[in-house]
Simulated scan of single mutants.
Amino acid sequence: MRNLTYLVAMSLDGFIAAPDGTYADFLFEGDHMTALFEEYPDALPTAGRRALGLDDVPNRTFDTVLMGRGTYEVPGGLPSPYAHLRQYVVSSTLTGTPSDVAVISDDVVPAVRELKAESGLDIWLCGGGKLAAALVSEIDRLVLKVHPIVLGRGVPLFDGEFPVHKFAKVETRTFASGVVFTTYTRC
Rank of each mutant, 00 (worst) to 15 (best):
G128Q: 09
G129V: 07
A132P: 00
L157K: 01
I139S: 13
E138S: 13
L131H: 02
V136M: 09
G154N: 05
G128A: 07
V150K: 06
D140H: 10
K130V: 15
A133F: 05
A134W: 03
G154C: 09
K145W: 13
A133V: 03
R141L: 05
D159Q: 09
H147T: 03
G129L: 05
P156Q: 06
L157S: 04
V155P: 09
K145E: 11
G129I: 09
V155E: 12
I139L: 06
G129S: 02
V150L: 14
V143I: 15
V155A: 11
L144W: 08
A133L: 08
D159N: 14
V150Y: 10
V155W: 10
L135W: 11
L135T: 03
D159V: 10
G152A: 14
A134G: 01
P148N: 12
V150P: 02
P148L: 08
I149V: 15
L157Q: 04
S137M: 08
H147A: 09
S137G: 14
A132Q: 12
H147V: 01
K145N: 06
S137V: 07
R153T: 11
V143C: 06
L135I: 04
D140V: 02
V146A: 12
R141H: 09
D140W: 02
S137I: 00
R153K: 07
L144H: 03
L135S: 06
D140T: 00
E138M: 02
R141T: 15
D159T: 06
K145Y: 00
L144N: 03
R153V: 03
L151I: 08
G152L: 11
